[in-house]
Amino acid sequence: MTVTDEARQALERQQTVEITTIGRRSGRPRRIETWRYRADGRFWLTGSPGSRDWYANMLAHPEFTLHLHGLDLRVRGRAVTDPDERARVFGEIVPTLDWAGSLESWLAGSPLVEITLDS
């Protein structure tokens, strides 16, 4: 499906999302719940510091499905590894999370993926 205004509005409203990635070793779909963030005018997936299977799957297969209350969108993930971009994005996200801990720990150990929507 192409991205509609309805889909963009749903993504704006919904912070808890489900994604389906393709397993890097199994090749099978893997569906999980995670959080979507908005920073620098774009949409992101991340998590507290630590390794994530969904991130490893996305690195192997950047296309995945984003599930939004009845809408299934094919999207693409872009892993963010540039230190300046990571600092800018996490600098917006982490201070809004009272449970997050230090910005430094997120910079050092959290995955960061930009969600690219089809237009």
Rank of each mutant, 00 (worst) to 15 (best):
A87M: 07
I19L: 10
L112Y: 12
A87P: 03
R30A: 07
L68Y: 03
W35P: 00
T34E: 02
P95D: 11
F64D: 00
V75C: 04
L45F: 07
S110P: 12
T16G: 06
H67R: 05
N57E: 00
S51Y: 05
G70Q: 09
D98Y: 13
Y55C: 05
I115R: 00
P29F: 04
W106G: 08
L73Q: 03
L68Q: 09
P95S: 11
V17F: 02
G109F: 09
R88V: 09
G50W: 08
R86N: 12
E63R: 12
L71Q: 13
S102A: 15
G109K: 13
Q15R: 14
T65M: 05
D118H: 14
T20V: 06
L66H: 01
E6G: 10
Y55E: 11
G47R: 04
S110Q: 10
V80S: 11
F43V: 08
Q15F: 09
H61M: 01
W106N: 06
G109A: 11
R52E: 08
H61L: 00
R76Y: 09
R13D: 15
G70F: 01
L73G: 01
D84P: 02
L45H: 00
L66D: 01
D98S: 15
R8W: 09
L71H: 12
L103T: 06
D72C: 05
V113R: 07
T46L: 12
R52Q: 08
M1D: 12
T65A: 08
Y37N: 07
L59Q: 03
R13A: 14
S48Y: 13
T34A: 02
G41V: 03
F43N: 10
L112G: 07
G70W: 03
G101A: 12
Q14F: 03
G23N: 02
E114S: 05
A56N: 08
R28E: 15
R42S: 14
I32E: 07
V113M: 13
R78N: 11
G27D: 00
A10Y: 01
